[in-house]
Amino acid sequence: MKLKKLMTILLTTVITTAVLTGCGQQENAKDAQKKPLKVATNATFVPFEFKGDGDSDYKGYEVDMIRAVGRVMGRDIEFNNIPFSGIIPIIQSGDMDVAASGMTITKERAGKVLFAAPFYESKLVILTNKNSGIKSVEDLKNHSVAVQMGTTAADYAQNLGLKTKQFDHNAEALMELKIGGSDAVIADKPVADYYVATEGKGEDVVIPIPDSKKEYLAFAMNAKNKDLQKEINAAIAKLKETGEFQQIYKKWFNVDPGDLPKTAEETLQ
């Protein structure tokens, strides 16, 4: 009788412990979901992510978009401003959850990180002074070209064998043009257009690069974090469904976004 009673007590203890452990694990999972998304950015990529003069807050199209994504996911956003060349390594290390830094989806990068659904379609262009004598890509061969390190613009310039000056921050490349240290900048079209509209003062022009392929910008995350990729893709789809995605896009570019691929994988085919 005593043995039976002892067995009952032991069984009850085991069941209680298992239930409490299960509840604890569920609570831990919920807590993890509520933690802020740690976002790595390089806040010099106007108009995607930047800081205004004397302004400590982050702003820009991509900043607004990741904040909207976080809101749909029920998570706050915690920005960390680092050089662009360090973005992928810090995502790979797991120290940051998401990269929101105007990153173009490429096959090489897709071998290192996962990409969410793209939020912007772009092309590379040349930005130069209207009196520089530069009218096409061919004219760049005898000129100094500023680019941001680690970008598709830097890759393009190097593949052409151009004389380049590379900078950690996009704003530094633009400043190099402004002070006359370089004759041109190769950059994404929205960056060049925004610069001409706000800083160019009628002196700078944007020149198309005919052989520039379509580029798609997207958030990136650790290659092992497929759950986060699915969550962010679902949040982007929800924002499109409610119209908020389109509102954010039009706020910054004054046009509708058009049809974008639903996954990063579509852009690599």
Rank of each mutant, 00 (worst) to 15 (best):
A40M: 03
Q246N: 15
D193Y: 04
F245G: 02
G200D: 09
L10H: 08
G258Q: 08
I134L: 04
M73Q: 08
N80G: 08
A171N: 09
M175T: 04
M96C: 11
D193F: 07
V63E: 03
T16S: 15
L228D: 05
N131E: 14
L260N: 07
E172I: 02
A146Q: 04
Q269T: 11
I236G: 02
M96P: 04
S136V: 03
K262Q: 14
K51R: 14
I209Q: 05
K135H: 12
D31R: 14
F219N: 03
V46D: 05
D188I: 00
M65H: 04
D57G: 10
G150Y: 02
Q158M: 11
R71H: 13
T151D: 04
G180D: 05
A264H: 00
K38P: 01
A153S: 15
E266A: 12
P261H: 01
E265I: 02
K178T: 13
K34E: 12
N222T: 10
Y61C: 08
G94V: 07
M1C: 08
K201G: 04
V69D: 08
I105F: 01
A153Q: 00
D188T: 01
F253L: 10
I248A: 03
A218H: 01
K4Q: 13
E62R: 03
I126L: 07
N81Q: 10
A40C: 10
N81P: 12
D55A: 12
E62D: 10
T164I: 15
A234P: 05
N225M: 09
S122G: 13
E176G: 03
V205F: 11
G60H: 04
K130I: 10
A117F: 00
G202F: 05
A43V: 01
P118R: 07
T21N: 14
E121M: 14
N170D: 14
V72G: 06
P210R: 06
E172T: 08
Y120S: 05
T104A: 15
S136L: 04
K38V: 11
G258C: 11
E108W: 06
K123A: 06
G258P: 09
T242K: 08
G102M: 04
Q246Y: 09
D259H: 11
S144K: 12
T17Q: 12
G202A: 07
V145C: 03
D55K: 14
D211F: 01
T267E: 01
M7V: 15
N142E: 15
T8H: 09
K178C: 06
G102S: 15
E199N: 11
A234Y: 00
L174P: 01
F245Q: 01
A68C: 09
E241C: 09
K262D: 13
T151M: 04
A197R: 10
D227Q: 13
V137L: 14
N42R: 07
D155F: 08
L140T: 02
D256R: 11
T41E: 04
K107F: 05
K163T: 14
K35M: 10
F119V: 10
I209V: 13
P190G: 02
A18Q: 08
A99Q: 04
P190C: 07
